[in-house]
Nucleic acid binder design. Structure first.
Length: 274
DNA sequence: CACTTGGGTCCTTACGCACT
DNA sequence: AGTGCGTAAGGACCCAAGTG
């Protein structure tokens, strides 16, 4: 039995919409579907399959239902509008993009950290002197003719996501992990052992402080508040500028960055020797 | 005891390998 | 070559512990 058929079976049997994590749990218990290597099915895998079979399933507010009339009646749930991209007549995207990318608008983080809004938007990070990085990164920036190292989005809050997670390591910032890796830091050995998410490695407190100090000294940042079309704008920018440390969606992603991140993961997953 | 902070967990989606 | 499938990046949610 394929995974999506197994998901259909579960939804039919339970006769109500289910979360991806619930479906994974039920399948792991009833054995309707087993992975080739025998490992447990994760919620993310269910989500991936749901997206690959839009004709079979509907997804509303995080719960999955069967689409076919033979399946479960879809419960009425308050609808959240999934805004489709519409280029309306007063589209001010070009203005926002210019405002975001204009080098003059960038400032060091200590100068602006109290001003980052608790609102959604896009952010861009530049490096003052590309030569403060490892040679392969310096070279890549010179080839690209800019000093942009990361472009990201915060769908809820720039303050929490951009400032908190990315620049101050509160929580799990993708950029912070990548930067630490390319600066030559590695997490503490075994720090991911037993953790559910085997990717979100962290650095030691003292390493974190050193990275934050490096960020304050070497990086300048800018952001714009945006609500609509965040993903589309981000994707366009990634294609146009190919920032140094973005991986997903970046045609100029650097394999060396991925390798350094993988090395961090390897160390963090390693059983501590004693 | 309300508020803040830290961080564990969850969700979505792009990517790339494996199989047909 | 096309399709199926699993993994991991990127981002947000949410709760427990800390703080005043």
């Amino acid at each position: 039995m394929t995974l999506h058929v197994a998901i259909q079976e579960v939804l039919k049997e339970k006769a109500r919409p289910l979360r991806t994590s619930e479906i994974a749990g039920i399948l792991n218990e009833n054995g309707l579907y087993r992975k080739g290597n025998g490992s447990l099915i994760k919620a993310g895998q269910i989500s991936a399959r749901i997206n690959n079979y839009p004709h079979l399933f509907t997804k509303l507010n995080g719960v999955i239902s069967l689409k076919s009339s033979t399946g479960v009646p879809v419960k009425k749930i308050k609808k959240i509008s999934m805004r489709r991209v519409m280029v309306d007549t007063n589209d001010n995207t070009p203005v926002l993009v210019e405002k975001l990318m204009k080098p003059k608008n960038f400032n060091s983080i200590p100068e602006v950290e109290n001003k980052v809004p608790d609102r959604p938007g896009l952010y861009c990070i530049r490096i003052v002197n590309p030569k403060s990085l490892k040679p392969f990164l310096t070279k890549a920036l010179l080839e690209r003719g800019h000093n942009i190292i990361y472009i990201g989005l915060a769908s809820k809050s720039l303050k929490k996501r951009f400032l908190g997670q990315e620049l101050r390591a509160k929580g799990h910032g993708t950029f912070f992990r990548s930067l630490g890796a390319v600066l030559g830091f590695t997490p503490e050995k075994g720090s991911l052992v037993g953790k559910k998410n085997q990717n979100n490695y962290k650095f030691s407190k003292s390493d974190e402080q050193q990275i934050v100090a490096w960020i304050n000294k070497n990086l300048i940042v800018n952001w714009v508040e945006v609500i609509d079309n965040l993903n589309i704008i981000e994707n366009t920018l990634l294609k146009e500028y190919q920032p140094l440390l973005n991986l997903t969606g970046n045609p100029g992603r650097l394999i060396e960055v991925k390798q350094l991140r993988d090395e961090c993961k390897r160390v963090a997953r390693e059983n501590a020797k004693y």
